[in-house]
Design a protein around this nucleic acid. Structure first.
Lengths: 249, 249
DNA sequence: ACACCAATAATAGTTTTACTATCATTGTTA
DNA sequence: TAACAATGATAGTAAAACTATTATTGGTGT
């Protein structure tokens, strides 16, 4: 009856809310990030959807629960029943992005056995501004999510609470994605000693170089254009290939 | 009479404040970052010194002007006469760090003409936790400053005000340091097409890998130890050398 | 010695955000 | 139809980020 481990109350289940708008895959986000699962209710989903739009538009610092409440015609207090604070909501959304990337990688590398091709595909997935996969209609707008990652992600773990939050698994999905990349590198270049460092670096640069291109162009060689994502991809491939040159099979 | 371009008032000059504690080189920070030059007065220097300590200890979000005022036995209002807000103070301190790194690089690469050696020295300077140079007694504790860079730097440019702040030269000293690294790379590997991207990446990773080692160890291959800085240095040298392998003279 | 003036201190007030608390309403389910 | 979970409505608190005003103080020029 109780559907969530963490709650012992009854919860409105599928019947009343089914297909409110569109179908979507349930994304399993670490449940320490929320108080009540936002995917399970109409209000919860509205919170997520509008939070993505508002954070993308306003930036995280300007974004407040008061504004969000107004946008979805609800109240601050109601939102606080889902998320302890706006930081946790942000980390929830970012986690969603990393989970979704991991899903995409899984899907796209499914039939690829050659490590070189797998890795190349992974880098492509990381760099491309891609919306929902072929069989999914996702609740959230992944293009906006990627933009949020680019603009906000490197802030969330730079706090005095990192260690406590890391203990609670707040960065679990990000770490898991980096680990996936690291494994692909290890497959590609056995005994390469910097798989993790290289993976974390590449994942970060996949958004950072684009951010620089937009805002601090002297810090990158990538120019704003309609093919800038391919340029970023080429740069990252070059970095990976050259770094691992002496360790490939 | 007026000593600062930006102010037309008379200013207490050297006589009254000379050698209050110790000598130091005047660091020329972009003057849009402050309202009144903090290096010129006793109070200003106290603000800088204690800000470094408090931001390092508390983290930037917990740090407030009220707390700082209390620590230096002054008032919030007085601090606001030097800095418009705590963000600008933070960027001031970070700029100080990049300026100081650039000075160190200049000093250490002075007699080195071979591009390979120059670049190697630069990477070493970036990675080493080094306090003041041989002929300087600096006003600020550079070891703490480096720690602040590691913990806070990647937050400061990720805001909706980047473009406006960049226009005001808030990131000038950071960009200048990256440019120095990029030039050294270009010298080392003529025609290498990613000098800027590689330089920005390496500068960032020089602190990020250490941060990960401390807080999110699964994201790096570097372990916490007394030689972790050398490990980071080795990783960065490896990345630079392999990336530029085909472009060297 | 005196008047002046810039810098600072002391104090208080405003606005906004983050968050908590309380109680009323509504719609579902047993 | 009673019970109850979710939400709405409303109010309130605490702290942070400023702003404004007036009073000291200590050095400067004459």
């Amino acid at each position: 009856m109780a559907q969530k481990a963490k709650s012992n109350r009854k919860v409105n289940t599928d019947h009343s809310e089914e297909l409110s708008g569109s179908q979507f895959i349930r994304v399993v986000v670490n449940d320490k990030l929320f108080l009540r699962d936002p995917q399970e209710t109409e209000l919860g989903r509205k919170i997520l959807q509008h939070a993505v739009i508002m954070i993308d538009n306003l930036g995280f610092e300007e974004f407040t629960f008061a504004k969000l409440a107004q946008a979805i015609q609800s109240t601050e207090a109601s939102i606080y029943r889902y998320f302890e604070n706006k930081h946790n909501l942000l980390i929830y959304l970012l986690s969603w992005y990393w989970l979704w990337l991991e899903y995409l990688v899984l899907f796209r590398t499914n039939n690829i056995s050659k490590p070189a091709d797998r890795l190349k595909t992974i880098v492509a997935v990381m760099c491309k501004q891609e919306s929902s996969g072929p069989f999914t209609i996702s609740l959230l707008d992944e293009v906006r999510l990627k933009s949020i990652v680019m603009n906000e992600f490197n802030k969330v773990y730079l706090t005095k609470q990192v260690d406590a939050q890391n203990n609670d698994g707040f960065f679990k999905h990000y770490k898991s994605f980096v680990k996936t990349v690291a494994k692909a590198i290890a497959d590609y270049a056995p005994n390469y000693p910097y798989c993790n460092s290289l993976a974390a670096m590449v994942v970060d640069e996949s958004t950072r170089q684009l951010y620089f291109a937009h805002h601090l162009p002297s810090l990158t060689d990538i120019q704003v254009s309609d093919k800038m994502e391919q340029d970023a991809q080429a740069f990252l491939e070059h970095i990976i290939n050259s770094a691992t040159a002496n360790h490939r099979r």
